[in-house]
Amino acid sequence: MYVNNNKDIRKNQMEVLTDKTQKGEERPWRENKLKTLSLAKSYERIGNTRKADRVKNCSSQLIYKKDKNTGIKKLHSMISCQVRLCPMCAWRRSLKIFGQTSKIMDKALENKEYRFIFLTLTCRNVEGKELSKIIDNLFYAFKKMMLKTKVKQIVKGWFRALEVTHNLDKKSKDYNTYHPHFHVILMVNKSYFTDTKQYLSQKDWTSLWKDCLRVDYMPIVNIKAFKTNTKKEVEKSVAESAKYTVKDNDYLIVNDEKMTDETVSILDGALANRRLVAFGGELKKIHKSLNLSDIEKASVNTDSDDDVVLRDDVNYVFEVYNWNIGYNNGQYLKVKEIDKKEN
């Protein structure tokens, strides 16, 4: 059962959250919480009060499970809004995507019969009013390309993630336009690189993508080997593909509420009800064999086991932190500590 440890709550309220990765890097809880409040204000201004309330309350309380002997702690639960553009949920979701993709790649790399390539599929920048329609076309084109006979013969599995960038360079001819594109990992037979009947050059991939995209220009397609010599190389390669769908500084524009609201409205509509990240073929089978949760629906409310591991038999306490906007321009402060007592 759980019992209060009777510590001085007023003293605890002045204890600011400290949460670091295994590498000693401070996790960006405060920065992301401040960004969620900025997004909530934007939703309020454009009249979406439902999402404004959800985002405003997101991550307002964090509960940690801490080992009393070592001081190591792990996020036990949090309040989350699950709004697509929420900076806090996007950060937490990106950790889940990276974690799942890394596990799948580690398993896939055990089979020496396969190699991996990294593919970036793009289209021209588009105006905000066209973004949703163009993203529809991108998904259609990707599905069509994966069904091409030549591609089906060589691609045994795939991972794809959509990214959308917003051009905010006022000197650019594409200022205030959007660039949706796919980051893709392809699983191919090891003979792919030596068998001329299987190998597709960058020119071949570009031609295929242009045909599937049904455009009258030559889209930019980038293809390169997925480096797998060391674990660090694999992690770097995974990180290149498992990116944020859209970075918060592309829609939370400093000192420009009008453009912020316009961008939030456009992206909120264009990204709604889409499967932005997906696995196919052998990589999807591995995902299932590892009993991983649906990557689009995976909970962001706890740390993954790769972040921190706490045994169930250790003595631990629960630490409760609440967001306090009135303390030092916003901080997470500890308000309660609860001991776990063995029955």
Results as ranks from 00 to 15, higher is better:
residue 197 K to R: 14
residue 38 S to R: 06
residue 342 E to D: 12
residue 5 N to S: 12
residue 83 V to Q: 11
residue 224 K to W: 04
residue 206 T to M: 10
residue 57 N to E: 13
residue 61 Q to K: 14
residue 235 E to F: 11
residue 250 D to F: 04
residue 222 N to I: 10
residue 143 K to E: 12
residue 125 N to G: 07
residue 59 S to G: 14
residue 276 L to M: 11
residue 270 A to Q: 07
residue 90 A to M: 05
residue 258 K to A: 13
residue 28 P to I: 02
residue 278 A to S: 15
residue 307 D to R: 05
residue 127 E to Y: 10
residue 264 V to C: 00
residue 31 E to K: 13
residue 293 S to R: 08
residue 180 P to F: 06
residue 264 V to H: 03
residue 244 Y to P: 08
residue 162 L to W: 04
residue 265 S to P: 01
residue 108 A to Q: 07
residue 265 S to K: 13
residue 314 V to G: 08
residue 205 W to M: 02
residue 212 C to W: 00
residue 338 I to V: 13
residue 260 T to K: 04
residue 93 R to G: 08
residue 167 N to S: 05
residue 233 E to S: 15
residue 9 I to E: 12
residue 279 F to S: 01
residue 142 F to K: 06
residue 241 S to L: 14
residue 155 V to C: 09
residue 299 S to T: 12
residue 108 A to W: 03
residue 296 E to Y: 08
residue 324 N to D: 15
residue 239 A to Q: 09
residue 317 V to F: 03
residue 186 L to H: 00
residue 265 S to M: 12
residue 16 V to G: 04
residue 101 T to C: 08
residue 317 V to A: 08
residue 223 I to H: 08
residue 8 D to C: 14
residue 2 Y to G: 03
residue 199 Y to C: 08
residue 178 Y to A: 02
residue 9 I to F: 12
residue 305 D to I: 12
residue 7 K to D: 15
residue 3 V to W: 02
residue 193 F to V: 06
residue 220 I to W: 07
residue 11 K to F: 14
residue 118 F to L: 10
residue 208 L to W: 02
residue 101 T to A: 10
residue 272 A to Q: 14
residue 39 L to R: 03
residue 289 S to D: 15
residue 85 L to C: 01
residue 127 E to M: 06
residue 301 N to F: 00
residue 163 E to K: 00
residue 250 D to N: 15
residue 71 G to Q: 02
residue 252 L to N: 06
residue 297 K to P: 00
residue 298 A to I: 10
residue 4 N to T: 14
residue 62 L to W: 01
residue 131 L to M: 05
residue 146 M to A: 10
residue 45 R to F: 04
residue 155 V to D: 06
residue 181 H to K: 05
residue 96 K to P: 03
residue 11 K to A: 12
residue 289 S to F: 13
residue 29 W to S: 12
residue 103 K to C: 13
residue 56 K to G: 06
residue 294 D to R: 03
residue 335 V to Q: 04
residue 299 S to C: 04
residue 125 N to W: 07
residue 248 D to W: 05
residue 261 D to L: 03
residue 158 W to E: 07
residue 12 N to P: 00
residue 26 E to A: 10
residue 119 L to E: 07
residue 22 Q to K: 15
residue 335 V to H: 06
residue 338 I to P: 08
residue 34 L to V: 07
residue 174 D to V: 09
residue 170 K to M: 03
residue 220 I to A: 10
residue 222 N to L: 09
residue 210 K to M: 04
